[in-house]
């Protein structure tokens, strides 16, 4: 039986994910596993940006808004409800509904790509300022004090579905985080392989052309935006769970910029690339923060500039298009000749 190379790659990725999920707890101590759990949350955040930008062609400079909304929605809901089962759903639903409202005005209002970037960035800054100014006892939702700049500490962790008396320990949290990441990856792959996914990619390629053959780009872009917001919300939920804490910094420009760098380094137009970019850069940040030879931010900046200059296409496309064909592991693909009709990605 001959397997399509794309599906073979997908199966390999899922197998590798499962291997990491069950293998890492055997080789890492608890501290290492907890650190890897936050990398997984950031990988899911990067996946949302990679799906939106790389496949939908929508450049959001404020994806942190949905990440933060997911995190805050989880924290507020779980503090009020106790059991984490419904709060996880709320952490996905709140960003999706917010994205539906924002996206409706952006896409049906025919806002151009550049302004979509500006609007999403502005929304993220507004949320940062808004949550930042909620210090004091007056600012609470039910039992959850919003806490302004200090954020919400002591957020209860995930528990076994429907059983608030069985919270997950850090080891179990690892399985929940990686399991969620693998599930999201599979769902996004399935979406991209569906008719909907083909239309999304076609709209990225040439929006006018897709419109003239009967597809409504506004509708497809809105759905793509909502899906990416839901994934970012789930990532925010995992992030809040990791530290049991959330603060307005999740809405910061740093978060929005960081996720773009994850995608660029890992490779735009792939799902694997953003995840690898996120884990790699988060690891570098950790290493840089624990040494005293050079300023961590300076060192990281140099690494990022070097990446953009030397590997502009990102790590995964480099391996896929140059390394694997060179090693004759996969056949070279025919390259499209630019027609001048493509929408810039």
């Amino acid at each position: 039986m001959k397997i399509d190379p794309r599906w073979a790659g997908f199966l390999v990725m899922v197998a590798l994910g499962l291997l990491l999920m069950f293998g890492l707890p055997q080789v890492l101590d608890l501290f290492g596993l907890v650190q890897m759990t936050v990398f997984v949350a950031m990988a899911m955040f990067a996946l949302s940006q990679g799906f939106l930008w790389g496949y939908g062609g929508i450049m959001s400079f404020g994806q942190a808004a949905f990440f933060g909304l997911g995190g805050y929605a989880y924290a507020i809901a779980v503090i009020n409800l106790g059991d984490s089962t419904l709060p996880v759903v709320i952490a996905v639903a709140v960003p999706v509904v917010f994205a539906a409202l924002l996206g409706y005005f952006m896409f049906y209002g025919r806002i151009s790509d550049a302004y979509i970037g500006v609007i999403t960035l502005t929304v993220s800054v507004i949320l940062f300022e808004l949550v930042n100014s909620t210090s004091g006892d007056a600012y609470h939702i039910g039992a959850a004090q919003l806490g302004g700049f200090n954020g919400i500490p002591g957020v209860p962790p995930l528990n076994m579905p429907g059983d608030s008396s069985s919270p997950l320990d850090p080891g179990q949290m690892w399985y929940a985080a990686v399991g969620s990441l693998i599930m999201v990856y599979i769902v996004l792959r399935a979406i991209l392989a569906s008719r909907f996914g083909r239309v999304v990619v076609a709209i990225r390629e040439n929006e006018t052309r897709a419109m003239l053959i009967g597809y409504d780009p506004r509708f497809y872009k809105l759905l793509t935006f909502m899906i990416a917001a839901g994934v970012a919300g789930l990532a925010g939920c995992l992030f809040t769970n990791w530290g049991g804490f959330i603060s307005p910094t999740v809405f910061s420009l740093t978060m929005s910029a960081q996720v773009i760098i994850f995608v660029l380094v890992g490779g735009l137009g792939t799902l694997l690339g953003p995840m690898i970019g996120a884990v790699g850069i988060e690891y570098l940040i950790t290493i840089a923060g624990s040494q005293h030879l050079v300023d961590a931010n300076l060192g990281l900046g140099i690494v990022l500039v070097a990446f953009v200059l030397l590997v502009p296409q990102g790590v995964v496309p480099l391996i896929r298009d140059k390394v694997l064909p060179f090693a004759k592991l996969v056949p070279r693909q025919s390259k499209p000749i630019p027609t001048g009709a493509e929408v810039p990605r």
Partner: peptide, 27 residues
């Protein structure tokens, strides 16, 4: 387009990074 008007514009605008089969599926 949904009413049944097809348009083949000047400059043969196809989806350059989709395969021929995928281009046809889009139609």
């Amino acid at each position: 387009a949904r009413l049944g008007i097809g348009y083949v514009p000047q400059g043969r605008e196809i989806f350059a990074t989709l395969s021929v089969a995928e281009n046809l599926r889009m139609g």
